[in-house]
Design a protein around this nucleic acid. Structure first.
Lengths: 190, 190
DNA sequence: CATCTAATTAGATTATAATCAAATTAGATA
DNA sequence: TATCTAATTTGATTATAATCTAATTAGATG
């Protein structure tokens, strides 16, 4: 299940009129004008909302003569509603999971021949890849003074203050009482 | 469970950033700047989203020194996510369910001493109450010609065409091949 | 009490979307 | 083919909300 699909589902359900339509269709199919009449809205408005509900497959339709009946797909509704409670184990994130090839390409683009950082990329994903690159020289479990971290960063870039702050913000490192330490890799964003 | 609460829940969940926050908090509490760092957004933006998630009780907080840790309330998330699949039997609707006292008051306001309709109210709820009032004289199970329906309506109001159409749109009545018949009361909007 | 840090609020900008009237389309029927 | 009905699309209007910078607040600490 992708993130965007779950977002789209809840965005669609998060509307008063559409929930009222779902409620009406729970007790059986209805045609458009019947829904419009029951809800006190105009047919174009109902068409608009039914189109949204069809996008997420929660409503289907069947034509009979000139009249189209709209059906609620309760199984789909249930499955999608429960998806948000089940994310976690699987690769939801899309954006934060990065392949090794992609990492290599970004590093090649932003690191010069002497191993130093040319510029700090603005894009979060790329920035994280380069933060990981810079953190590689540090040891798991070892405690560092702030000055040691600064010195380490200076091998890659002159703006050690910004980068040190990023190390902590992104949870590559942990800081307590001025002492710095690497976080376990599970906590890293890439 | 009220309609507005279900709408509010899904409106809140239906946002990419907020779902990513939920995903992050699934593996344990985090403080604001950590979330901001991991998602590549600024602290005010995270504050904004956390406030929304707190409104629906899906996130709670605990302060430790200067740092506030945000926790995911998984039980609440699950209960609210499943609410949409359980509406139907209970009184979700709020607006379409009307007490007898309320009906009586509306009828008193819109029906004159001779039993005729003074004006057709614009408000859907009131209109439905008066449609029900006018439909009372018709028999369940009996089939009516269009002219008979017109005659019946003329006892209450001269605009029989509009009202006849409303009877069908609101599902007080059913029409097939020019023959009209009352729908079962369960299908009526009031 | 002065200062630091993390979080929040205020205000502005920009994007998204709910609703309706008017026009159009799709299919049925005479 | 002409016409009717239900549904949809278009275009406009209005409301809501995501994000940021700058300013402020709340609590901790020296």
């Amino acid at each position: 299940m992708q993130l965007s699909k779950i977002v789209h589902f809840h965005k669609t359900i998060g509307d008063k009129t559409r929930i009222r339509i779902i409620y009406l269709l729970k007790s059986g199919p209805l045609h458009g004008q019947a829904i419009a009449g029951k809800l006190g809205l105009k047919p174009p408005t109902i068409s608009h909302h039914l189109a949204k509900l069809k996008e997420i497959d929660v409503v289907t339709q069947r034509r009979d003569k000139n009249t189209i009946y709209f059906y609620l797909n309760e199984e789909k509704l249930k499955r999608m509603a429960e998806a948000i409670t089940k994310i976690g184990g699987i690769n939801l994130d899309n954006e934060l999971i990065v392949s090794e090839e992609e990492k290599a390409k970004v590093i090649q683009n932003f690191i010069d021949s002497t191993g130093r950082l040319k510029t700090i990329p603005a894009q979060r994903k790329k920035k994280n890849i380069l933060l990981e690159y810079m953190v590689r020289g540090l040891e798991q479990g070892k405690q560092y003074k702030e000055e040691e971290i600064n010195e380490h960063i200076l091998r890659y870039h002159e703006d050690y203050a910004t980068i040190r702050r990023e190390f902590v913000m992104t949870q590559f490192m942990y800081r307590q009482d001025g002492v710095y330490e690497l976080n376990p890799k599970e906590m890293w964003p890439v």
